[in-house]
Amino acid sequence: MKKILVTGATGQLGSELSVLAPSYPQYEWIFADRNKVTLGNLKLLQSQLEDINPDIIFNCGAYTAVDKAESERDLAFRINHEAVKLIAKYSAENNVKLIHISTDYVFDGSSSIALNEEAKTNPINVYGESKLTGEIACLKENRESIIIRTSWVYSKFGNNFVKTMQRLMQERDEINVVNDQIGSPTYAADLAKVMIDIIESPKWISGIYNYSNEGEISWYEFALSIKEFGGYSCKVWGISSSSYPTLAKRPSFSLLDKAKIKSVYNLEVPNYKESLKKIFV
C-alpha cells in the first residue's frame, strides 16, 4: 500500500484532503501537522521524512502570513524555500512523487490577460518571493516534481476571505471590499480532488501547473457572491486598494490560465460560483 504524506494537515487544503482520504482506502494517509513534520527546523525535518518514509508527498504546508512575512523574512524563506528544497531533494533521492503547492503571488500583477505557466514571474512582496524561490529550488532538486500554483484559497476550514465575509456581513450594516484586484477564487476541496486525480492518473507529467476555479472577478465581486448565497442584508461597497493599505503589496491582476492542467489531466474546472455554493449548504 502506497503511503501519502500530507504536510500542513490542519490548513485548508490539508483539511479538505483529510475529508476525501476515506474515499481512497488504497492509500495509507499520513496527515502531518507542524509537530509531525516541522518545516521550520530543517534537521528535524530530514529525520521526520526518513521516519515516515512516504511514497507520495503532498506539500501543502507553508508560511502564508502575507503581511507578517514582511517582518519575518527569515522564517518565511526557511519554510517556503529551504524546507521545500529539502523535501524536493529527499523525494528525488528516494523516488517519491511530490506535488508542491505554490501561489499566484509569484506574479507582479501587471498583466491584463490570464497568466499561463510560462508567464514572467516578478513577486512584489516577501511571501511571493519566498514561494518563487521555493518553486525554483523544488524543480532544481527534483525535476520530476509537480508544482500547482493556486489563488484566493477558501474552505470551510481555517481562516479565509469567505469566512471573514460571512462573519462581517452578520455583524455589520455595511463593509468595504477592494475592487481593483482581479483573479479567481479556489475552493480548497476542488484543489484537493485535483491532487488526488493526478496521482490516480496513469501519467505523471512533471512541471508547473495553474489551478483555480473559473471566473474573472475582483474581491468586491467575490464578496457580492458571498452576500447573495448567504442571504445577508449588509451593504457592500467597492473601494480601491489605495484606500485599504496593507504591509505587503498585492498583485492587482493574478488570474491564472488553467488550460494546461485541463488538457494534460483531462480535468473539468468548476465556475467559482458553483463551488462557492457548497460552503452554504
Rank of each mutant, 00 (worst) to 15 (best):
37 V>C: 11
126 V>Q: 04
275 S>D: 09
258 K>I: 14
89 K>H: 11
102 S>T: 02
184 S>P: 06
116 N>Y: 02
82 E>T: 09
159 N>I: 03
160 N>C: 03
230 G>S: 05
245 P>R: 13
95 N>D: 05
196 I>Q: 06
90 Y>V: 11
37 V>Y: 06
5 L>I: 02
134 G>N: 01
45 L>S: 14
78 R>K: 15
84 V>M: 00
53 N>R: 13
276 L>F: 13
19 V>T: 15
224 L>N: 10
229 F>V: 07
277 K>W: 06
270 P>Q: 13
68 K>H: 12
265 Y>S: 07
139 L>N: 09
56 I>M: 01
166 Q>A: 02
3 K>S: 01
138 C>A: 06
2 K>Q: 09
232 Y>N: 13
169 M>E: 09
215 G>F: 05
180 D>E: 11
254 S>K: 13
134 G>C: 00
249 K>M: 07
161 F>T: 14
187 Y>D: 09
30 I>C: 10
68 K>D: 12
64 T>N: 10
97 K>H: 05
92 A>W: 07
54 P>I: 02
61 G>P: 06
49 L>E: 05
139 L>E: 04
175 I>V: 15
31 F>L: 07
52 I>F: 04
223 A>W: 06
3 K>H: 02
11 G>P: 05
241 S>I: 09
5 L>T: 01
274 E>W: 08
59 N>H: 15
278 K>N: 13
25 P>T: 10
68 K>F: 04
193 K>H: 12
153 V>P: 06
238 G>Y: 08
14 G>I: 03
146 I>T: 05
90 Y>E: 04
26 Q>Y: 00
243 S>T: 08
160 N>V: 05
267 L>W: 06
21 A>Y: 01
217 I>W: 07
172 R>H: 14
266 N>G: 07
281 V>R: 15
66 V>N: 11
47 S>Y: 10
169 M>K: 14
183 G>V: 05
153 V>F: 02
274 E>Q: 15
233 S>V: 06
40 G>W: 07
227 K>H: 08
85 K>Q: 11
100 H>I: 00
130 S>F: 00
193 K>G: 10
280 F>V: 11
96 V>R: 03
234 C>I: 07
177 V>H: 14
117 E>G: 08
195 M>E: 07
76 A>F: 02
161 F>D: 04
196 I>F: 04
107 F>Y: 14
261 I>V: 12
186 T>K: 12
176 N>S: 14
103 T>E: 02
6 V>C: 01
39 L>H: 05
63 Y>V: 03
220 Y>A: 10
87 I>A: 02
43 K>Y: 08
95 N>F: 00
192 A>D: 04
265 Y>F: 11
221 E>W: 04
175 I>R: 14
59 N>C: 04
259 A>D: 14
114 A>E: 14
128 G>S: 08
221 E>C: 07
139 L>W: 05
